[in-house]
């Protein structure tokens, strides 16, 4: 049973490199499982989704990239700010994408300005497109997608990114920009949205997660779950871990074991192995402190193991099953 049955827009953030794209893709697969239609969107122009699903770069077009377990489709979209702008002009002002107005805008550098120089304006367009996909309905009035998963900007920028429409809406007292901004914020702040944070059990990602949750809450955005990624199972028993951490692992027992296995066990080898065990135990203790700190957030949390080698398509399905079993999807 999903912990987020009413959520239609899942925003996945996290410190850079913690696994946002991996988790977003797995979550999309998990949500699609059993016959649903899910859109996985990215906004940073990195083609991370195409790389992960091993397909050619995504155009600005919703494309099927995977079939989930038990049927169900994952579509993907790389939202490009320039296309989103032309889209927006087309939708609201009936401007042709290739007509004179679009060309003039481009020639003036307006498109560059709106899409690269001023991240605030760019983010308005990106979040606007995400919201549009999340609320879109087909001719029969049904939602076009059962869920939309956004591979979002990193934690340090997420609150600002999602809240940009609020800021811009605050600047524009009336007019089309105001209407559009209010519409985006209404969806992002509703119970149909959840912002999930991906973290590793390391000091900085954990701290960023804690700060990120506070920041999201302070601007009224709904925080979903915390996904602890790349978790390693400690190989040593708790008692041995404790001893190793204190540097008092039983050297003689270690030596005896090595000899029993038919290895030479000179002192320096025993010392070096014991030192490696100490490093490991220090790491595990650090991870434990990270876990405690995250527990203080009082948000549902989910753990994904560190997969051997990097994540391939089979790995994504594996992670998707775990997310489903743990209730994120």
């Amino acid at each position: 049973m999903s912990d987020f049955p009413d959520v239609r827009l899942h925003v996945v953030t996290g410190k850079g490199g913690t696994g946002k794209t991996t988790v977003a893709a797995s979550l999309a697969l998990a949500l699609a499982a059993g016959g649903k239609r899910v859109l996985l969107a990215e906004v940073e122009g990195r083609q991370g989704i195409a790389q992960l699903f091993d397909c050619p770069p995504l155009p600005y077009e919703e494309r099927k990239v995977a079939v989930a377990r038990g049927g169900g489709d994952v579509y993907a979209l790389a939202i490009d700010p320039e296309d989103a702008l032309l889209d927006y002009l087309h939708m609201f002002y009936k401007l042709s994408r290739t007509g004179v107005a679009a060309r003039t805008l481009r020639r003036m550098g307006a498109i560059d300005f709106a899409t690269t120089v001023a991240p605030g304006l760019r983010d308005v367009l990106l979040t606007g497109k995400v919201k549009e996909a999340a609320v879109r309905r087909d001719k029969s009035g049904r939602h076009a997608y059962d869920a939309v998963v956004l591979d979002a900007p990193p934690t340090g920028r997420i609150a600002r990114f999602l809240n940009i429409s609020h800021e811009v809406g605050g600047l524009a007292k009336v007019g089309p920009l105001k209407t559009q901004s209010d519409g985006v914020m209404a969806v992002l702040r509703s119970p149909a949205t959840a912002v999930h944070l991906v973290t590793l059990l390391e000091e900085m990602p954990v701290q960023e997660t804690i700060d990120g949750v506070a920041e999201l809450q302070s601007v009224g955005l709904p925080v979903g779950g915390v996904v602890v990624n790349s978790v390693r199972v400690p190989l040593l028993h708790p008692a041995d871990l404790l001893a190793a951490e204190q540097g008092s692992l039983d050297r003689e027992a270690l030596r005896a074991g090595l000899e029993k296995a038919g290895l030479d066990a000179p002192d320096h080898l025993v010392q070096a192995l014991a030192a490696e065990a100490t490093d490991h135990a220090t790491r595990v203790a650090l991870e434990e402190r990270g876990r405690d700190a995250l527990a203080g957030l009082d948000r549902p949390s989910y753990e994904l193991p560190l997969l051997p080698d990097s994540v391939d398509l089979a790995g994504l399905y594996e992670l998707a099953e775990m997310l489903k079993a743990q209730g994120l999807a």
């Binding site: 190989l235 040593l236 028993h237 041995d240 692992l249 039983d250 027992a253 270690l254 005896a256 074991g257 090595l258 029993k260 296995a261 192995l273 014991a274 490696e276 065990a277 490991h280």
Partner: peptide, 12 residues
């Protein structure tokens, strides 16, 4: 027996 040394070897 020797669980600890086996685990240390795997870590290594």
């Amino acid at each position: 027996g020797h669980e600890m040394p086996a685990a240390v070897l795997r870590l290594h």
